[in-house]
């Protein structure tokens, strides 16, 4: 139901590199889980509104007042490769 190519496609979307063993296991496991999930297909949900947030909240606004934010050095302190006040990464086009 979910074949190797589909697994690889989804893994690519999710930026996950899976090895061959993982691809094979994932395809079986996802199929079992999706089989269970497919049971919600039996329900008549035509006139049902979707719920994305359970507790009714109106627009939450605050006054637009400037206040100090996280200092740059604190934000960079955990970075694997900080440089020139930013996060350094390799070129998107290749090294």
């Amino acid at each position: 139901m979910i074949d190797r190519d589909q697994v690889l496609h989804v893994a690519r979307l999710a930026r996950l590199r899976l090895d061959d063993q993982e691809v094979e296991r994932m395809s079986g496991e996802l199929a079992t889980i999706l089989d269970h999930i497919d049971k919600i297909g039996e329900l008549d949900l035509d006139d049902v509104e979707p719920t994305s947030h359970v507790i009714q909240v109106e627009n939450v606004l605050r006054p637009d007042e400037p206040r100090p934010s996280l200092p740059r050095e604190d934000a960079l302190a955990q970075a694997p490769d900080p440089a020139e006040g930013g996060f350094r990464v390799p070129s998107p086009g290749g090294a």
Binding site: L13, A14, L16, L30, I33, S91, P92
Partner: peptide, 30 residues
């Protein structure tokens, strides 16, 4: 990862996430 940006993302995530987290990310992305 020590190649391009895509391989940095993919290899960091491949090494850092455990099997269940990968399974749920796959399920959610699907």
């Amino acid at each position: 990862g020590n190649g391009d940006l895509l391989s940095l993302y993919e290899e960091t995530r491949a090494a850092g996430f455990g099997a269940e987290v990968k399974r749920r990310i796959m399920l959610g992305t699907y």
